[in-house]
C-alpha cells in the first residue's frame, strides 16, 4: 500500500505541565544538610554495610529499613565513570562541552551523577580524585553541590620547598635583559638619579664610557629566585649580601642564581650562595643569602 502524501504535514506542539516532587523525610534531611551545613550525608545498611549516597531509606538488597543510620561523608571522592556532553539541548545544566561524571565519595558505595569542572576535557579520566564545590546560592536540590573539581593533593596554597625538602646543591635562577626603561624606572623607584646611570654625555667621561645600570638592579633579580623558585613561595629572606664585581650595561642579560650551600637545622634556615652573571658568562656580582623556607600549612583548598 502506498500512502498519498500530498496532504501530510506536521504541527508543532508542546507538553508543558507543572509538577512537584516530594523528597520525603529521608531525602529532605539529605538536602537540608547540604544546604545548611554543606555536608554530604548518607545512609548505611546495618546488615550489608552498604553506604547509600544520596541516601535511601531502604537497602534494596537486604530490604531493611536503614533510615535512621546516618553517616557523614567527606567531600572527596573518585570518578568511577564519565562522559563529555558535546551536543546542546535547552534543558542542559551547562553550555556544552561539559563533563558529567559518576562520583563515588570516599566511604560511599553508590556513585552518583554530577558535574566535574576544572579539568581539561582531554585530561579527564576515570579514577580522578575530586572534591565537592558547594554552590554559593542554595536551590535546595542536589545542585547545592555546584560541581566537583579535581582534588589538589598538595596544600591548597602553592608553596615552595620546605626545609625538609631542601638539599644542599639545589639551585635555581632567573634571567632578564636590562633595558633602558628598567634603569630609568629603577632610578625613579630608588631616587638615585646619579648621572652615571641617566646622562650619556656625563657617562662618556667616566671609566665605563657609557651609562651603566644601578648595582642594586641586577642584584634585585635574586628576589624572584628566592621568593618564587628556591625555596620558593612563602620564603622569608633574612639577609642578602652582595659584592659587585663588574658593571652591567644597558641591554645586558643578567642571570641571578641561588644555590643551597648550608642547612641550619637548629633554626631550620638555609644559607645560599648567590651569583649574578651576564650574557658573556661574566660574573657581575656574587654574595650570599640567609632565608627561612616556607613552613608547611594545614589548610587545603579553601
Amino acid at each position: 500500500m502506498t500512502t498519498e502524501t500530498k496532504d501530510c504535514f506536521t504541527i508543532d506542539g508542546k507538553l508543558a505541565l507543572p509538577y512537584q516532587y516530594f523528597a520525603g523525610s529521608t531525602g529532605s534531611r539529605f538536602i537540608i544538610s547540604l544546604r545548611e551545613e554543606k555536608k554530604i550525608k548518607g545512609l548505611k545498611c546495618k546488615k550489608c554495610n552498604k553506604v547509600f549516597v544520596p541516601p535511601r531509606s531502604t537497602c534494596e538488597v537486604c530490604f531493611e529499613d536503614i533510615s535512621d543510620n546516618w553517616v557523614e561523608l567527606p567531600n572527596t571522592g573518585t570518578v568511577t565513570g564519565f562522559t563529555i556532553v558535546r551536543y546542546e539541548e535547552p534543558h542542559q545544566p551547562l553550555k556544552p562541552p561539559y563533563i558529567t561524571a559518576l562520583v563515588k565519595l570516599d566511604g560511599a558505595d553508590t556513585p552518583f551523577a554530577h558535574i566535574v569542572k576544572g579539568v581539561a576535557l582531554s585530561q579527564m579520566k576515570t579514577g580522578l580524585r575530586v572534591e565537592a564545590v558547594f554552590a554559593k546560592k542554595t536551590t535546595a536540590t542536589i545542585m547545592d553541590i555546584d560541581h566537583f573539581r579535581p582534588k589538589a593533593e598538595k596544600p591548597g596554597f602553592e608553596q615552595g620547598y620546605t626545609y625538609d625538602q631542601l638539599e644542599e646543591g639545589m639551585s635555581a635562577s632567573f634571567t632578564k635583559t636590562i633595558s633602558e626603561t628598567d634603569v630609568y624606572l629603577f632610578a625613579g623607584i630608588s631616587g638615585d638619579f646619579n648621572p652615571m646611570h641617566l646622562n650619556e654625555e656625563f657617562a662618556k667621561a667616566t671609566p665605563f664610557g657609557t651609562r651603566i645600570a644601578h648595582g642594586a638592579l641586577p642584584q634585585s633579580f635574586i628576589a624572584p629566585v628566592l621568593g618564587m623558585k628556591l625555596p620558593g613561595l612563602g620564603t622569608i629572606a633574612l639577609e642578602v649580601t652582595t659584592r659587585f664585581k663588574a658593571p652591567t650595561y644597558f641591554g645586558d642579560t643578567i642571570t641571578a642564581t641561588g644555590e643551597i650551600i648550608e642547612k641550619l637545622p637548629e633554626k631550620r634556615w638555609v644559607r645560599m650562595a648567590l651569583t649574578f652573571t651576564n650574557q658573556h658568562n661574566k660574573r657581575v656580582a656574587e654574595g650570599s643569602a640567609l632565608v627561612m623556607p616556607p613552613v608547611p600549612m594545614k589548610s587545603s583548598i579553601t
Partner: peptide
C-alpha cells in the same frame, strides 16, 4: 499529601 515519603518509600 504524602510529602514525608518519596515515591519508593510510599510504595514500600
Amino acid at each position: 499529601h504524602r510529602e514525608e515519603v518519596n515515591q519508593p518509600e510510599m510504595i514500600h
